[in-house]
């Protein structure tokens, strides 16, 4: 019985949250990796673009709520996301047309484009804060839990409860669907293949007649979809605070680089690698050991390797280790 309790404890505090957090990171990491692979620069505006997409989702959600539209048990935000995606795609294409295009046409070095993206980051950040403000906002409505801890305890008679939030299930479910569609698109359709070809060997892609303008446009469209959904899912699950999104850029970049930058599948798995490492290392295992060890050996301390305040140190360390020992990532991306 104690053993079962220990497993439920890990499921509840590590496995389910890490799977959720990993999915959110994965969407951001695929965003980073696709921009890097095709437009060939590190997009530092990633976090704030996700915040922007989330903000639009929230504003539309509020509008829907004000006129009395809701999805019942599901969060209203799900209905708002498609509209936010359209807006976000417009925003991405706008930024590309008036900012990035100039540097791309002039064949600026990638470092310069990365610096330009920092400029975009500041502007986007400012716009988000002017429109919605820097404070913490929750926009989740509908049924919060699928399984409540108390109900679970009653059902199974265990001491430990397993709580599964509907936002967690939604996140994992939507991520899997979105990523499957994306991989199908990249691997099976002509347009998707031409994007991979462009990322693989730009000159030869041009010689084969692939239209670079079209490839760039579709890249930004995909980026808009990923930024909005990734950001909105994170906001639904936790809360929306622009600064957190900016902070999330470190684990997102770490995930993209661990997976091999430029490789979308690597970025997808990289998201989970980072999320699981962060949560494994910052979780306090005291209770877990209380279940599995005899009473005499019970730990005195929290058995926590690192305080949660330092969770970014985990992604940063992984980043440094990967860059030192395997610079092209686990799944063979480009060498940085």
């Amino acid at each position: 019985m104690d053993f079962l309790n220990a497993i439920i404890l890990l499921l509840n505090y590590i496995f389910v949250p890490a799977l959720t957090y990993g999915s959110q990171l994965a969407l951001g990491a695929i965003f980073v990796t696709i921009i890097y692979g095709i437009l060939r620069f590190a997009n530092f505006a990633t976090g704030d673009m996700m915040a922007f997409g989330t903000m639009v989702t929230i504003l539309i959600t509020w509008y829907f709520q004000s006129i009395g539209i809701s999805l019942g048990v599901l969060p209203t935000a799900l209905l708002a996301i498609p509209f936010a995606i359209f807006f976000m795609i417009g925003y991405m294409l706008f930024v590309d047309k008036f900012v990035f295009r100039y540097y791309r046409v002039n064949k600026s070095p990638p470092v310069q484009l990365a610096m330009v993206s920092i400029g975009v980051m500041f502007v986007t950040q400012a716009v988000v804060r002017i429109i919605i403000g820097p404070s913490d906002r929750r926009f989740f409505d509908g049924e919060k839990f699928i399984i409540k801890a108390g109900e679970f305890k009653e059902m199974t008679g265990l001491n430990e409860g397993l709580a599964i939030k509907s936002s967690q299930v939604l996140t994992i479910f939507i991520t899997l669907i979105l990523v499957s569609i994306l991989f199908w698109f990249l691997n099976k359709t002509k347009t998707g293949k031409s994007m991979r070809a462009y990322s693989d060997n730009e000159d030869l892609a041009l010689l084969s007649g692939i239209d670079p303008k079209r490839v760039v446009m579709i890249t930004w469209i995909i980026a808009g979809i990923l930024a909005t959904i990734g950001g909105a899912l994170y906001g639904l699950d936790k809360s929306f605070k622009p600064f957190t999104y900016f902070n999330n850029m470190l684990p997102i970049f770490a995930a993209a680089i661990v997976g091999g930058i430029g490789n979308p599948f690597g970025a997808f798995l990289g998201g989970y690698v980072i999320a699981f490492s962060e949560i494994f290392i910052t979780y306090a295992y005291k209770k877990f050991f209380m279940y599995i060890l005899p009473e005499s050996m019970e730990p005195e301390t929290l058995v926590q390797l690192l305080s949660t305040d330092y969770k970014f140190a985990v992604s940063f360390s992984i980043l440094v280790i990967v860059l030192l020992y395997r610079p092209n990532g686990i799944f063979k991306g480009k060498v940085l």
Binding site: K193, R196, A197, D200, N201, D203, L204, A205, L207
Partner: peptide
């Protein structure tokens, strides 16, 4: 057919 980089190596 260019001299170098004349294939899509990752495909």
């Amino acid at each position: 057919v260019p001299q170098t980089k004349n294939v899509f190596a990752g495909m």
